[in-house]
Design a protein around this nucleic acid. Sequence first.
DNA 1: TTTTTGCCTCTGG
DNA 2: CCAGAGGCAAAA
Length: 309
Amino acid sequence: MADVLPHGIIRSVEFGRVHGLRREDLDLAATLRSGQVFRWTQDSDGAWAGTIGTRRARFLQEDDGSLFWEADGPDGERAIWEFLRLKDADLPALAERWCAADEHFAEAWAQQPGIRVLRQDPAECFFSFLCASVAPIRRISSMLRAVAGAYGEPLGSLSNVPLKAFPAAARLAEADEETLRGLGLGFRARRVAEAAQALILLPENWLWTLRDEPKSTAKRELMRFFGVGEKIADCVCLFSLDKDDAIPVDTHIWRMACAWYAPDLAGRSLTPAAYARVGDAFRDRFGPFAGWAQQTLFYRAAVSGARMI
DNA sequence: TTTTTGCCTCTGG
DNA sequence: CCAGAGGCAAAA
């Protein structure tokens, strides 16, 4: 099957299946809903469609856990495995240790196993979390869909779901603040416009090169952008730059830390020193993939809405 | 230097 | 009216 995209590129859609996956390895729906990606949509068949960079993709997870996928080639299968990080982390084995180390994680895992950290496109991730300030997931999704709808390159449809690439910085740099405001970004419009302007002065692959830098360097570089503080920098590090022990400290993680992992912080305010203490407490307890453990705890508190503390 | 405070902005209760 | 997936800049 071959598609001619609106800009003339011919792509063939590849497909395949990942066997031997259990819910403990991957719960696709929970992972895509866990507040790390915002533009994946579920159709009436229960399949999820979205983009990985400029590549269209579609997933359907069967009841036994196994995963059917479709994706633009070439190397669709490799792209799927990288996006889901299936080779990088044995989630059930990690979770078994985390359950033994922490009763609160054990409760969250029992309710919802299989939430993975994805390896997403760094540019879309950067702009996504720039838009995430003081906004619930539903609103973040609506902002990013509006931005992609207005500026994103059409990639054609996959199973009747029209898909657009998230606009490159060069395209976003053409947008002025007022236009972005009109797309519902509010005060975030200035941050997105300025970040796009700053990014086009750097090499096109600059964000990707941060994958090769240590977390401290990547964070420091990201925080030079207006609108990027520690929390957003940690989100970009964890969700797109392979920094598996980055801990984005939002209000939910902060409350958990005060209650369970660093109780001496209770009643204090979230200063930079306290922020660092929270991250260290998570890394002490959960180890090099602490950010993955964080994602399960975050889902339980922020997405499922369960009362934990 | 570190921490606190006010402000920005808008949807939903 | 108030609260909520933050960050900035000024001031203490």
